[in-house]
Amino acid sequence: MRYIEEIGRYGLMLLEIFRKPTKWSVMRKLILKEIDELIFNSLGIIIFISFFIGGVVTIQTALNLTSPFLPKSLIGFATRQSVILEFAPTFISIIMVGKVGSYITSSIGSMRVTEQIDALEVMGVNSVNYLIFPKLIAMLFYPFAIAIAMYTGIFGGWMAAMFGNYAPTADFIAGIQEDFVGFHVTYAFIKSLVFAVIIATLPAYHGYYLKGGALEVGKAATVSFIWTSVVIIIVNYVLTQLLLG
């Protein structure tokens, strides 16, 4: 029963985001600030993780291809498929739940416990719109970050193949061009866009409706990480079934 109530409240909060919008001159600055905070400030960790995950995928694929009859280009092919279909959109999203989601929960949660959200409401500001809408818009740029993750992941795989002598560059490049299905990239972008909406709103919900003090802010960030990750994993399964199944 509690979960149904929570889902209902989350739905109402999503509707409230678009009611009584904040003045555009104020909102524009907030959106730019959030793009910087949520997207640009995450690029470093996204590039770092993608590069090494791409490398690891390449090494593990290479080590499992023991048959001499299998072409080396398969290493590039497997790296591309793994990175584009799962590692970039899903794995990076889980990392982003930890980084961006926790930031959103704790920043909004801190505003709740210090009565800053009450202050916004008393002034007549739609606090849900003011706090969450800019984050939601900023996260719509998330697929660009995922595109960078895809590129860096495959690049990391190529570097691992080259420096570890797992596959010659020509074979690896041939592998990443082999049987390329454009829709797989579209699928990855659709997923990342849906994940972006989840990452922007679910942690915000946990922060916005927080009750208690500073200790609860920490707890809410943890609970938010768990639930947002769970929802992303489930939505990932559903979208994969719907789009590729």
């Binding site: 800053q116 202050a119 002034m123 007549g124």
Partner: peptide, 19 residues
Amino acid sequence: QRELRKAMGMVFQGSALFD
């Protein structure tokens, strides 16, 4: 109600200034 609140000022116990 939100419009009416524009005619209200509130000083919170912890001041509630935007950090």
